[in-house]
Simulated scan of single mutants.
Amino acid sequence: MRVADLTEEQLLGRIVPLLPAGSATLVGPGDDAAVVSAADGRFVVTTDVLVEDRHFRRAWSTGEDVGARAAVQNLADVAAMGAVPTSLVVTLAVPGDLAVSWVEGLARGLALACAPWDVGVVGGDLSGGPVVVVGVTAHGDLEGRAPVLRSGARPGDVLAHAGVLGASAAGLALLSADLVGPGDEAAIRAYLRPGSPLAGGPAAARAGAHAMLDVSDGLLRDAGRMAAASGVRLDVRSDALEGDVRGVADAAARAGVDPLDWVLGGGEDHGLLAAFPQGAALPAPFRAIGTVHAADDESARVTVDGAPPHVRAGWDHFAG
């Protein structure tokens, strides 16, 4: 059955029952707008979009993969503010010849990513289009805490990371070069359906993190954003990344690249990068990967072992 074989109402009738409600939802899908509780009078909001053949390929990705990925990349942004995710609103454009089962899979993927965190998918919009486009807006509850901004890092802070680095880049490289082999399941999954240490965001806020952001475009590029916003220099220790390098070393050897390039420059792992006060107990799963210094050179906001890195700085949607 294709999308074109159904009316909009019939397609929605297949999607909506698959979506989680979430305990913060007061009014869910079915009215002109949803109503979601915001216990402390504020809410965190973020949005992102996935475009077919730009961010994913249907030849590689199931509907479940795309739904889960669309949810996680937005939930990670909410967590990076120190907030607890509460709800998503999803817009979806699909071509008429798309299988209805693929759209149902997308709904299941959204549910798989959201349900463990009690996040509701509370509404959205549906349209036709030449390719699949998934837009997600996520909301979160600060639970009375101040938001953790990327502009708060201070000299002397400990730079810490939660999550994996380089795995998604490895998966993309293997798929692109048709190099997928036995033992590559983890890397492929990291690209098609990334996870994120979402509980680490609120935990970091409770532990007193000065600054935090989601690492979506590569460690170096996103660290540079934190450094620029905070007016500091971030120095990453390469020895703290040895586990990440080992994790992608075999794939990198087959692809003919330095695995450190993926670890430092690869994006879409959706880990969390945070700056903690010196001496603070790092909440799980954060691990120290560097230090924060006073900015002494505008051209070197981020260094690796004290020197400017010789690695491509990560993904840019327009520069590539």
Score class of each variant (00 low, 15 high):
D184M: 08
R154C: 03
R233C: 09
R206Y: 02
G163A: 14
D214L: 02
L220H: 14
W117N: 14
A205L: 06
H161V: 07
V136T: 00
G140E: 08
G224N: 09
S176P: 00
A146P: 00
A169P: 07
D141Q: 09
A111E: 04
L213W: 02
H161W: 12
G195N: 02
G183P: 03
A146G: 02
G195V: 11
A115P: 13
G144F: 11
H139Y: 15
P182V: 13
A170N: 11
V232G: 05
R154S: 03
R206P: 04
V121H: 00
A111V: 00
D178R: 11
A113P: 06
A211M: 07
V134P: 04
L219K: 15
R189L: 15
V148G: 09
D178V: 13
D157Q: 05
A187P: 05
D141N: 11
L192P: 07
P116G: 14
D178E: 15
A204H: 03
A203T: 11
G129L: 02
G208S: 06
A162L: 07
G140N: 10
A186E: 08
A160N: 03
P147K: 08
A160Q: 00
L126W: 06
M212E: 09
D217A: 12
L175D: 08
S168I: 11
V215N: 12
G129M: 02
G200L: 15
R150S: 07
L149Q: 04
A203H: 06
L142A: 08
S230D: 04
D214S: 14
G128R: 10
P147A: 07
S230K: 00
R154P: 01
G183A: 15
A173N: 06
A107C: 05
A160K: 02
R189K: 15
D222I: 07
L149W: 02
A186P: 11
A204Y: 04
G171F: 14
V164R: 14
A111K: 04
E185T: 05
A223M: 06
A167P: 02
A190W: 12
G156A: 11
A207D: 01
P194L: 15
G218W: 14
L112T: 12
G163T: 03
R150M: 04
G144T: 05
S196W: 06
T137I: 01
S151E: 01
L126R: 07
T137D: 03
H161C: 08
A170V: 07
P197W: 02
Y191Q: 13
S216V: 14
A209N: 05
L172N: 14
G140P: 04
R150H: 14
A211R: 05
A138P: 03
L175K: 13
S176N: 09
S216L: 09
D157V: 09
I188L: 15
S176V: 14
S230P: 09
P147T: 07
V158K: 03
S196I: 10
L110V: 00
G124A: 08
E185R: 05
D157G: 10
R225Y: 01
